[in-house]
Write a protein that binds this DNA or RNA. Structure first.
Lengths: 358, 358
DNA sequence: AGATAATTTGAAAGCGCTTTCATACTTCCG
DNA sequence: CGGAAGTATGAAAGCGCTTTCAAATTATCT
């Protein structure tokens, strides 16, 4: 239903009413045991399903739990050697537009299973990531999910000896370790193909940070895409960026400064593509009439850029979900198996066939 | 130094090398005590500075700690009634572009003091937020920061009786509770003033979610700005949005559909402003030539939109930092006092004087 | 039926740390 | 120099839960 223009003026008290919070952590397992006339061990067993308990006692305990509003104390559980029902998540920057979506996927999925995530930021720095992991372990998390980052594969495998680990952005096989990787190569190849199939021959590329594995895969994909269209790769058409807007803008400027001709520009992520669009616009080059621009990741914002950005959809939410699901499997002692959706080109309005002129 | 276009091809192994992780949680306070030839109590006292300990023993303990690489176990600390050195943070959506920055501020500031944040999402829902808080409390966090949200003031005060609370987006006085609020009214007034001083007379407004206190303040600011320029407020020039791009786009379309004349458009946040820009562009209206557009928040991306968006800077990072600092004060039993930077108009390229025609 | 195996259940010992409480040991002062 | 007043330290009792371990109960088999 289409709403008419006009604003609904807020009611006097628009704040949602909240019931008075009940105090948490008031009753203990011991109190439940006493109330139900059983021992603490029995209550614990019922809570954890660790052993069979007679139906009668189970009923009594359940009643007592309900009556006392008992909620087990995760801290005590953690100490007692049991699980803390929390999993550590090493992300790189808590406010990353791309990984933020993955965090949401993790949060949703973990929540469904009663686990809670502990987010920490590694800032793309192996040493910091290691500190984060040590911290998480000291907090007795049951497992750790590492979103890409710079830790060595060896370090990851080592950690996996101590507790379940799930990592993204790599492909590794090791006990107690599961990895999910998006096919960046194929995504970039597809993007390039999209451009070549539109008729572009001179396609510039703004690469990502060379220390970033994804960046190299995307570069490879670009080269492969070029190659399969019979276009020879020209290093002069590649400029390095740092995966953020500013660097994309600067890279585009450098490319333009070389006076190289190109009718399309493919950036290794949306943020750089957006920065590049601005650089293009500043030089009075129209997107897509003068230059087609293609991004990678499909950030939420890219749909609303001007013009809406053509890009490669990267299923960040599913990646997070998958990582969490895999962790849950590992925690249950099962073998995870998860299929991440493959890359998919989203053609919007920043790409078009090259015009006759430029 | 300006780098030339061209890509540095990655070295064979571009992954940062990581030293083999040392196992955490290996040594305990008891082991330190034994190694130093003192009692556990003494070690604890030294760790917490709870009592005076002779210099000799302190030295011995410090040596033992260093030798064993001992790190206190936060879980055990938490259980023993001590603090957990963690503070809960109720945000509304872990991937919000605006609050994400605030989270970073919190994280940085807390980290500096050895505390770690526990982020949970309340999804703008009082019930969920209450659940989050209960969960945080069961995890024995030392304090809780609530980023805006929908909890009632009464609920917040109630929680503050049990543990230190800091909340943003409101102005409340209560023991053990500190609030920081950004002056949304003044920000919106300033933005409107920016537009009127440019010569705009017909300024449309895209409001935020009416259940959101900030939205109403911004609407008030818009009205005040209009008024002080002697322009009468016209409800028909106000359209409701939901604080995201899509809703901004739709609201702008509705405004356009009414055939109302306006030379400027002020949206209650950047996301809606960006959506509105797209709507304008789709109708072949140029920003700022045909319509000036003003946002609110100064998201990182707004600097790179086309054209770069004029907006009101909202110091999200400082807000997060301030909230964390205030929490740290509360935790030390001090009285926090923090001054958030005031609103500031950032004039970029989406606003200009109205052209003669439209 | 008698004995052995299988099944519930509770007592008690921690998990690693903080915190009384009591005990040695100083220091101070009339 | 004897006792009041402090001080530094350790023993021990938890925090709230899990997990042996062994006792008590019930099922199973020759």
């Amino acid at each position: 239903m289409r709403r008419v223009a006009g604003f609904n003026f807020p009611p006097e008290d628009s704040m949602a009413k909240t019931s008075i919070p009940k105090t948490t952590g008031t009753s203990t397992l011991g109190m439940v045991a006493k109330a139900a006339g059983v021992s603490a061990s029995t209550v614990s067993r019922i809570l954890n399903g660790t052993a069979v308990v007679s139906e009668a006692k189970k009923q009594a305990v359940d009643d007592a739990i309900a009556k006392l509003g008992f909620v087990p104390n995760p801290v005590a559980r953690g100490l007692a050697g049991g699980r803390t029902l929390s999993v550590g998540v090493v992300t790189q920057s808590i406010d990353s537009p791309f990984y933020g979506v993955a965090l949401r996927g993790i949060e949703d999925e973990l929540d469904r299973a009663g686990y809670s995530p502990l987010f920490v930021s590694g800032h793309w720095n192996a040493t910091e990531e290691a500190r984060c992991i040590d911290m998480l372990r000291s907090r007795r998390v049951d497992g750790i999910i590492v979103l890409t980052g710079r830790l060595s594969d060896a370090a990851l495998k080592q950690y996996a000896k101590a507790l379940p680990m799930v990592a993204t952005g790599r492909r590794l096989k090791a006990p107690n370790l599961y990895t999910l990787d998006f096919n960046n190569f194929e995504g970039a190849r597809l993007a390039t193909e999209h451009l070549t199939s539109l008729g572009h021959q001179r396609i510039a590329f703004i690469a990502g940070n060379a220390e970033h594995p994804d960046a190299n895969e995307r570069l490879r994909g670009y080269r492969a895409g070029l190659e399969s269209a019979g276009i020879t790769f020209k290093p002069e058409l590649v400029a390095a960026g740092l995966f953020h807007e500013e660097s994309g803008m600067l890279a585009a400027e450098r490319l333009l400064d070389t006076r190289q001709r190109f009718t399309a520009l493919f950036a290794a992520n949306d943020q750089m593509a957006l920065g590049a669009c601005l650089a293009l616009q500043r030089r009075s080059l129209k997107v897509p009439q003068d230059v087609s621009v293609m991004g990678f990741d499909d950030l939420a914002i890219s749909r609303y850029s001007i013009p809406p950005l053509s890009t490669v959809h990267h299923p960040a939410y599913e990646l997070g979900q998958g990582a969490a699901t895999a962790m849950l499997c590992l925690l249950r002692g099962e073998k995870p198996s998860f299929n991440l959706p493959g890359p998919r080109v989203i053609a919007r309005e920043s790409t078009a066939a090259p015009s006759a002129r430029p």
